[in-house]
Design a protein around this nucleic acid. Sequence first.
DNA 1: GCAAAAAAGATAGTAAAACTATTATATTTG
DNA 2: CAAATATAATAGTTTTACTATCTTTTTTGC
Lengths: 233, 233
Amino acid sequence: MKEILSNISITVNNHIYLKNPESSGLGKRILEGSIDLLDELGFEAFTFKRLADRISSTEASVYRYFESKHKLLLYLTSWYWAWTDFRLFISLANIPSPEERLKRAINLLTSPVQKDISITHINEEKLHRIVIAESSKSYLTKEVDEENEEGVFYNYKKLVQRVCDIIFEIDPKYKYPHMLISTVIEGSHHQRFFAEHLPRLTDTSKKEDAIVFFYTDMVFQSLRAKQDKKLKS
Amino acid sequence: MKEILSNISITVNNHIYLKNPESSGLGKRILEGSIDLLDELGFEAFTFKRLADRISSTEASVYRYFESKHKLLLYLTSWYWAWTDFRLFISLANIPSPEERLKRAINLLTSPVQKDISITHINEEKLHRIVIAESSKSYLTKEVDEENEEGVFYNYKKLVQRVCDIIFEIDPKYKYPHMLISTVIEGSHHQRFFAEHLPRLTDTSKKEDAIVFFYTDMVFQSLRAKQDKKLKS
DNA sequence: GCAAAAAAGATAGTAAAACTATTATATTTG
DNA sequence: CAAATATAATAGTTTTACTATCTTTTTTGC
């Protein structure tokens, strides 16, 4: 995958950074280092000082790229949504049946991220763990409206919309596609976190992937309620 | 309601506080003041210094009740789950049909909190907004396992279990009751936040309460998938 | 009603976090 | 190679998140 896609790149809204971290070696070290450290320490204990030490740079240099650790988190999650949207696009290409496309979409959104699908210097497996544990902190703030106006959540909305478009093909009358899909995305992340840390809030069975199964079923049952087509679930 | 229930009180795991805030006037002012301030400022900008100023006390005095603002948030959310569990208990009393009980439970878990159901000095309407915007920060931390062992999430688990018990009555074979209910609770909170701040991630229709309807439908459709009883949805 | 105990207030102080500013040294680019 | 730009090194500020100490007020048990 690396070969084929070496000339595509993931873009993130430029209100999120001061200087594009993809534009320099230090910028890339900041991204790599912050993914490692956020995964190790969590958002609360993560600081630019610690990041600078880890990548053998200085606090002041990191501040030239991102105005705060909150913006850095926003960058990483936004990158993740763009990357997920891109993978989704590929996964759905040339599949004529909307039901099959929806099934593949849910599968991609709710499955764990495997190491081997990396396309860049970014460790997507670690990034996935960061998104699970930290991404809701990127919008559950008092600055959300302001930042939303700047377009920093565009990549997330775009991904949700892409899946909603499939639902529209299956049932143009279905009233809650966005609610359904954002519930699937946020929900599956929460369930992965619960499975690891608060197992009594979920139902873990190690054999099959209960999370993928549950949300696939949930979506198709919710849609079947509104229409009575046969589904290849 | 205030009259009838004046002798019941909500209990919170004692690992969460240093001194029980319900045991003194200052403690109650801390609870009241923190609910006001958290609602106004959000968790990030909330500090014990600001809280102390607001309630005309001192930082040091607040620290005698809670060892950190994180523990205070944990207290408030835990209180909220106990209160919700209590309301649920009442709402389900003497309703024989498990389907009807489940419907009432989903309704209670996904509806907005109205002012008039207050039983204490706590402003439950504000607390509900805090739970929506901040409660996931109480467990999305690196300390979650440690704190979970101390039992600080017990009230949340208990609430989820209570609803799972109803599902068991309806369909003892259903495999994912905890996933279903925690998805409903977390999901409905997220959707309320989205409706206000990120509307493109949800489907708002101001007339009826789309969120209650959506999750009720979701639950009953998910269960109908596994069984074919008639439901009064 | 009073003494002892406990709670709260007043004040001060520390370590670290979250930045900003300045100057010097590399590195890039035209 | 000069000029521009990026990074490093260093230092400083303000705020947060606490801890410590001492005094005053309130509670309580007799």
